[in-house]
Simulated assay, not measured.
Amino acid sequence: MELSKNPYAQPVHYTSNPLLAGYVSKENLNQIPDSPAVGLSAFGKGLIISFNDNPNFRAYWYGTNRLFLNALFFGEIIEAGSAR
C-alpha cells in the first residue's frame, strides 16, 4: 500500500525495522519498513478495511485474529470520512 496523507486512513504501520524473527527476502524487506499494515478505503456509502498480511494465517498467531474480528464486527462504527 502507498502511504496516505490522511493518518486515519492507515491506522497501523510497520516500524522502520519490521523483521523480529523468521525469514523475509531482501527484496520484500526493503519494501516493508514504515509502510501501512492496515488501510481504509471509502467505497460508495461503505468502507473497505484491508490488511497487507493475513491476520488469520493458519490460525498460528492467536493475537492477530482479533484485528480481523474487530474489522468484521466493529467496522460499521468507523466513519467513512476517515478513509477519504
Score class of each variant (00 low, 15 high):
26 K>I: 03
84 R>N: 14
40 L>F: 08
1 M>L: 05
84 R>V: 06
46 G>I: 02
82 S>D: 10
21 A>S: 13
38 V>M: 11
58 R>V: 04
8 Y>I: 01
80 A>L: 06
28 N>Y: 01
49 I>R: 12
52 N>F: 09
75 G>Q: 10
51 F>H: 14
69 L>H: 14
66 R>W: 11
54 N>P: 09
23 Y>V: 05
81 G>T: 13
51 F>A: 14
7 P>S: 03
33 P>A: 05
61 W>E: 13
35 S>T: 02
28 N>V: 02
67 L>H: 08
32 I>R: 01
36 P>I: 06
23 Y>R: 07
52 N>P: 03
36 P>Q: 09
26 K>T: 08
81 G>S: 15
76 E>F: 11
43 F>S: 14
16 S>F: 02
53 D>H: 08
22 G>M: 04
60 Y>D: 07
44 G>Y: 06
45 K>M: 07
39 G>N: 03
40 L>S: 06
33 P>L: 02
74 F>K: 15
40 L>M: 05
84 R>D: 10
16 S>I: 07
23 Y>E: 07
17 N>P: 00
25 S>F: 04
36 P>C: 03
62 Y>S: 13
29 L>G: 01
33 P>N: 02
77 I>M: 14
64 T>L: 14
16 S>M: 03
28 N>W: 02
75 G>D: 10
25 S>Y: 05
65 N>T: 12
41 S>F: 00
65 N>F: 07
61 W>V: 10
26 K>M: 04
1 M>E: 04
76 E>A: 10
69 L>Q: 15
70 N>W: 10
3 L>P: 04
82 S>L: 15
79 E>N: 12
43 F>E: 12
6 N>T: 07
80 A>R: 13
34 D>W: 00
63 G>N: 10
81 G>V: 06
30 N>L: 06
12 V>L: 12
56 N>E: 07
69 L>N: 15
29 L>W: 02
19 L>T: 02
52 N>H: 11
54 N>I: 06
61 W>I: 09
62 Y>E: 13
62 Y>F: 04
80 A>V: 15
39 G>T: 06
9 A>I: 00
83 A>P: 13
82 S>E: 13
38 V>H: 03
19 L>D: 03
46 G>V: 03
10 Q>I: 10
37 A>R: 02
31 Q>P: 00
51 F>N: 11
29 L>A: 14
16 S>K: 14
20 L>W: 02
24 V>C: 08
52 N>W: 12
27 E>D: 05
34 D>C: 01
64 T>Y: 11
70 N>K: 15
74 F>S: 15
11 P>A: 13
28 N>Q: 05
31 Q>I: 02
76 E>T: 09
84 R>F: 09
10 Q>N: 07
38 V>W: 05
25 S>E: 07
4 S>R: 13
79 E>V: 07
55 P>A: 13
66 R>D: 13
9 A>L: 03
59 A>C: 08
11 P>D: 07
53 D>E: 10
